[in-house]
Design a protein around this nucleic acid. Structure first.
Length: 247
DNA sequence: AATTTACTCAACCGCCGACCA
DNA sequence: ATGGTCGGCGGTTGAGTAAAT
């Protein structure tokens, strides 16, 4: 996909400083483009089965906290994971619909990991596309509370009325907010390790050899995880990077 | 070959919190 | 204390493309 043809807009009414230097992007937009598209550490291509499994697992724990999930998948952005989830949940919803329809034409996905998604109890029980009250892929995890984030992963809870109404001790097994917080504390230190080695047979990128300020810092957030000693290099070729910069 | 449908994914939107003058 | 700026996040959109008809 080449350069996106969406028209540029200044976010926030053009109050960002970039307009003064002739860029047709806000600083915010530049940052987003770098993080989600230009960053040399980004993996490209399809999710591996390991990654897919991890996404399913983490989403069942954390819900739609994409940035957090992304930290466990170095080289993948929250945006990418979000898109992946959206795509696959839509696919799953359609297959469910088809399965419920009178004319049974069971189409089995050929995706290896997708079969595991459908077998995941948390994901499998999701009310996707059946109700318009919530986004069809807004599922899983600690869904009875909406977490509003702040810097440094300080979260506060916004208890949604619908959620509270629908879960009274119920399927999530939470009786009180205290339990939720306790569970969250546990999750903070869950020992889940990032997925590495998928492309480990590929030689390190020259770009990654220029490890200066923050190429690895992107995947080392809040001091919580450090790739450090088992630093992993992604197969980003200089050609790939050039293409992205010039696309 | 033309058209339709499904899918991908970069970018936008709006909100919130941190920071600083 | 306050208001402006900015970074970061989750949710959403829509252009481009691939696959199917």
């Amino acid at each position: 996909m080449g350069f996106h043809s969406k028209s540029f807009r200044f976010e926030g009414g053009g109050r960002y400083k970039n307009e003064n230097i002739g860029l047709k992007r806000s600083g915010k937009s530049c940052r987003l483009r770098w993080v989600n598209y230009l960053h040399p550490g980004l993996k490209r291509g399809k999710m591996t089965p390991q990654e897919e499994h991890l996404i399913v697992e983490l989403h069942s724990k954390w819900g739609n906290r994409w940035s957090r999930i992304a930290r466990k998948l170095p080289g993948r952005t929250d945006n990418e994971i979000k898109n992946y989830w959206r795509t696959h949940m839509r696919k799953q919803a359609q297959e469910k619909k088809r399965a419920l329809s009178p004319s049974p034409s069971p189409s089995v996905s050929n995706s290896s990991a997708y079969s595991s998604i459908t077998s995941n109890p948390t994901v499998d029980s999701m009310p996707m596309m059946e109700t318009k009250e919530r986004s069809f892929y807004d599922t899983g995890g600690l869904e009875m509370v909406t977490l509003t984030k702040g810097k440094g992963d300080n979260y506060k809870t916004n208890c949604s009325a619908t959620s509270l109404n629908s879960t009274s001790e119920g399927q999530d097994g939470y009786n009180s907010m205290d339990e939720i917080w306790q569970d969250m504390d546990l999750l903070e230190d869950d020992g889940i390790k990032p997925v590495f080695g998928t492309y480990s047979e590929i030689a390190p990128s020259p770009i990654w050899d220029i490890r200066d300020y923050s190429l690895n810092a992107l995947w080392m957030i809040d001091g919580e995880e450090e790739i450090g000693s088992n630093m992993f290099f992604f197969p980003t070729t200089s050609e790939q990077f050039r293409t992205r910069l010039t696309s």
